[in-house]
């Protein structure tokens, strides 16, 4: 049976990757991963017997991120965060700046859809919102990012 420390060692980098695209900052990503793992650690015995402790952590991370953002957004809007984008990558930099400027809920929906490749139904379950809200959040976010979507509803599955 996998122990908590083993799980953390094996999956921390993957969680930091997910945290970085969710939060837009390496420090916030580490903070978010640690917070989620702290919660996982306190219920590890219960969660490890289920098949998907990582899904549990990712769910905590997405929801915690949205919750933190509501509390901290004033700080975040003014904070200088080291960018993971190089100066010679203007197109990537533009997409990244727009992504960072999105409200956390909208950004989480895009990350879950385009990075985690989840269906709208799965995103709704992960964020604890309705599928209709997922679609409207995605629609607004894509419009802000000026993404040419194949369809705004039910993109996949």
């Amino acid at each position: 049976m996998v122990e908590f420390e083993e799980f953390v060692r094996a999956r921390s980098h993957a969680l930091l990757r997910y945290g970085l695209v969710l939060t837009g900052s390496a420090d916030d990503a580490a903070d978010l991963v640690q917070e989620a793992l702290l919660k996982l650690g306190s219920s590890w015995r219960r969660v490890r017997n289920k098949d998907d402790p990582e899904g549990y952590v990712r769910t905590i991370m997405a929801r915690q991120h949205v919750s933190w953002w509501r509390r901290r957004r004033r700080e975040h809007l003014t904070a200088e965060v080291p960018s993971p984008v190089r100066e010679d990558e203007p197109e990537l930099g533009e997409i990244w700046q727009r992504l960072r400027a999105l409200p956390a809920g909208q950004r989480a929906v895009l990350v879950l859809r385009y990075h985690e490749d989840l269906s709208d139904q799965e995103i709704a379950a992960r964020l604890g919102i309705s599928p209709a809200t997922v679609r409207s959040q995605a629609s607004r976010a894509l419009a802000t990012l000026r993404v040419r979507a194949r369809a705004f509803t039910g993109r996949r599955r």
Binding site: V8, L16, R17, L20, P84
Partner: peptide, 10 residues
């Protein structure tokens, strides 16, 4: 962007 996540001692 995800590929650029720095490894940390979580």
């Amino acid at each position: 962007i995800a590929d650029r996540a720095e490894d940390r001692d979580v």
